[in-house]
Each structure stands twice: as C-alpha cells, then as structure tokens.
C-alpha cells in the first residue's frame, strides 16, 4: 500500500521535478564549469580553458566590488528599514480599528504592480523637469532642493532604494499580519488582565511570538537583496557611471550584452556561494536564540 502510494506521488511530481532539476539545479554546476572558461556563449564557438583567470579578474574588478557594496547596502536597508516598518504596519493593520481593511489593501498595492511598471512610474516621478518631486519642491518654495535625482551618482542609489523600500515594505507587512492572525487571542487577553501596557504587550508578547516570522523575513530580505535586479535594471541600468550597479545586473550585462559567458558565470557562482553561506550563518545565529512556539 505504502509503496504504491509513493509510486503515485513520484509519477505526479515527476514533471515538476524534471523542470526543477533542469532549470534550477543543473545550471549551478554548469555555471561553475563555465566559470573556468573564456567563452562567448555560442555552442559553435570554442570554449577556451582559462583556469582561474575569470576568478582573478572578478577579485580585481572594481566595478564588481562597487556592485557588491551596493548589494550589502541594500541588505542593511532591507533588514533595518523595510522589516521594522513592515512589522509596525503589520501590527497596525491587524488592529480592529475602523478602515484598516481598506488601508491594508492600499498599502499592499505596490506589491501587486509589476516591477517594470513601478520603475517607469518612479522614473517619471523623479524626472527633474516634469517630475512630481521637483514640482512639489518648487511649489512649496524649496526650489533650491530640486535635483536630478537619478542623474547624480551621489543620489541615484538612494533614490532607487526608496522605491525598493516602497515596493517591499507591504510584502513584510503581509507576512507579519498573517503571523499575528495565527497568535491565539487568549495571550493578549491574559496580558491585558495582568495589566500590561501597550508597549509591554508589544515587546513582551507580540514580538517574541513573531520570532519565526522575523527570521523568515530576514532570510528572504537577505537573499532577495543579494540577488536584486528588477527595479535597478528598469530605472538606472546600473548608471550613472556604475553608481547603482548590483551583482545580478552586472552578471546579466557581462553574459548577455558583452558576450562574456565565462565571466558572467563566475559572478553567478560567486553570488550563489555568498547567498548560501550568509543564509546558513543567519540560520545558525537564529538557532542559538530561544524559540517561542505557540
């Protein structure tokens, strides 16, 4: 009986497994293999063994390190800004106040738009001549603060980060709201009966019970930020002068624009190793902490 059931399970999941192996698992060793070659990506072109030269160029490539730096900046911002705001909003929309359902929906809107749409929308908002931000600044008499937001390498990366936060905060809000709805009401009731204040309830009851959700969010934020691509590709394409470059975009450019598949693969493998090891470290750190189970 058991055997039969296992067989059925296998048969039904086989298509998914094949696709997963072929498109997700196989490319990892393949990329590692390609990273030791100088190759333009055409199967008809020769693959010239290059030893470690791609890896040497990677570590010497100042543009790559600029990209990595931006990724780490994004990790920090995601964890220190997006998750806390997401948490507060999650708690807020979980309260029984009037109109919260509507607010929840409104806050969730950015998450439902496509990244390309968001990118184009904000490109126009940031437009120095016709854009909303500079128009508002001019209107309230702060005309000297108007700026070419995406055109100045000093402000470009922050301007994009603002949009990334705007896009992803609702995502964390929903995670936390969902986690909160799973906490039994009795715990809050008990806290109230014991005379806990609002902040005491938040820090002593709500927060500890959200540990699992926070952990999940942190890891999602970590991986997502290290592999971030979409909005930067749409809004700045890594410019001006590499100020908003990120690793995934650089990988894409090297492999698909400059015909350097070997080097592109090297970046991909590096990203994979980095994301994997950081995730493992984070998980380990969390395991040391106490877990609250409901």
């Amino acid at each position: 009986m058991w055997k039969h059931r296992n067989f059925k399970t296998l048969i039904f999941s086989l298509p998914a497994i094949v696709v997963y192996l072929f498109y997700f698992i196989l490319p990892i060793p393949m990329s590692l293999f390609y990273s030791f070659f100088k190759w333009n990506g055409f199967f008809s072109s020769p693959m010239i063994p290059a030893g470690l030269s791609n890896w040497v160029s990677l570590f010497k490539d100042t543009i790559f390190w600029k990209a990595a730096e931006n990724n780490f900046l994004l990790v920090v911002i995601s964890i220190l800004i997006q998750i806390p705001i997401g948490l507060l909003l999650g708690v807020l929309v979980s309260t029984k106040l009037k109109g919260m359902k509507l607010i929840k929906l409104l806050y969730f809107l950015p998450m439902m738009l496509s990244a390309v749409g968001i990118g184009l929308l904000w490109e126009y908002i940031y437009d120095p001549n016709f854009g909303l931000i500079n128009a508002v600044l001019n209107f309230i008499g702060l005309g000297n603060l108007t700026h070419g937001w995406l055109g100045d390498p000093k402000t470009a990366i922050w301007s994009v980060f603002v949009v990334i936060c705007w896009e992803y905060i609702p995502f964390y809000m929903i995670i936390f709201a969902a986690a909160l709805s799973g906490i039994p009401k009795e715990l809050f009731e008990a806290a109230r009966i014991d005379g806990a204040t609002h902040s005491q309830t938040f820090f002593k009851v709500t927060l500890p019970l959200l540990t699992n959700a926070i952990r999940t969010s942190t890891i999602l934020a970590l991986i997502g930020s290290l592999q971030y691509f979409a909005l930067i590709y749409v809004m700045t394409d890594g410019g001006p002068t590499h100020s908003t470059e990120v690793m995934a975009l650089l990988m894409y450019k090297q492999a698909f624009r400059f015909f350097k598949t070997g080097y592109g693969s090297t970046i991909a493998v590096f990203m994979f190793v980095l994301s994997l090891s950081l995730t493992l470290v984070t998980l380990k750190l969390y395991r040391r902490g106490r877990e609250y189970e409901v």
């Binding site: 001549n129 700026h147 070419g148 937001w149 100045d152 390498p153 470009a156 410019g239 001006p240």
Partner: peptide, 13 residues
C-alpha cells in the same frame, strides 16, 4: 538640463 545623466531617451524624457 538638470540631471541629464539619469534621463531615459527611450521613454521620451
């Protein structure tokens, strides 16, 4: 104009 390095020809800016 201001900020020209961030403007996109393709979207008509």
């Amino acid at each position: 104009e201001k900020g020209f390095n961030g403007l996109d020809y393709d979207t008509g800016q």
